[in-house]
Amino acid sequence: MTMFHAVVLIDHHQAQVLQFDAEHVQAEKIKARTHHTKQHGSAVRTEHEFYAVVCDALTGIAEVLVTGSHTALADFRHYVDKHRPALSPQVVGYEAVDHPSDRQLVALARQYFLKHDRMAGTPVPT
Rank of each mutant, 00 (worst) to 15 (best):
F50A: 04
A6M: 09
L114Q: 05
V97Q: 01
G41I: 07
C55L: 03
A109K: 01
V64T: 08
V17W: 02
V44E: 12
T2R: 12
D117K: 09
A120L: 14
T59P: 05
Q111C: 05
L18I: 07
S101Q: 10
V66Y: 00
Q90M: 09
Q14K: 15
G121K: 00
L58F: 02
A86R: 04
T34F: 14
Q111P: 04
E23G: 11
A74H: 15
T37R: 07
Q104P: 01
P85K: 00
V17Y: 02
H83R: 13
V91R: 03
K31N: 07
D11Y: 07
S42K: 10
D11G: 03
Q16E: 09
F76M: 08
T67D: 00
I30W: 01
T122K: 13
E63D: 12
S88W: 11
H5F: 15
P85M: 05
A32H: 05
V8I: 02
V80K: 02
D98Q: 10
H13E: 14
L18T: 07
T2I: 15
D11S: 07
C55F: 02
H116E: 03
A109M: 02
K115I: 06
V25H: 11
V7H: 13
D81I: 11
S101R: 05
V80P: 00
H36L: 10
P100I: 08
V7Q: 10
D102V: 10
H13L: 13
K82M: 15
V91E: 00
F4D: 14
A96H: 11
V7K: 09
Q39A: 05
P89C: 08
Q111N: 07
P89M: 01
A6R: 03
L58T: 04
I30L: 00
V91T: 01
P123Y: 09
I61D: 07
G93K: 01
V97W: 10
L105V: 12
V97L: 06
E95P: 12
D102Y: 14
Y94F: 04
D56T: 11
A107N: 12
T37Q: 07
H70T: 14
E63I: 01
Q104I: 00
S42Y: 08
D21K: 03
P123D: 05
A52E: 13
V8C: 03
H48G: 04
V124N: 06
I10W: 00
P125C: 04
K82N: 14
A109S: 05
T37S: 07
H24K: 12
T122H: 12
V106R: 11
R33S: 12
T67N: 01
M1C: 14
F113I: 03
Q26I: 13
M119G: 10
H78K: 14
Y112W: 03
P89W: 02
D75K: 05
V8A: 02
H116K: 06
F113S: 01
H83T: 13
T122E: 12
A32R: 14
V106K: 10
V66W: 00
K31D: 02
V91F: 02
A52T: 11
K31W: 01
H36Q: 06
K29L: 13
A74N: 15
A120T: 09
D102C: 11
V97G: 06
S42Q: 08
F4C: 11
A86V: 10
D11K: 09
C55D: 04
D21A: 04
R33T: 10
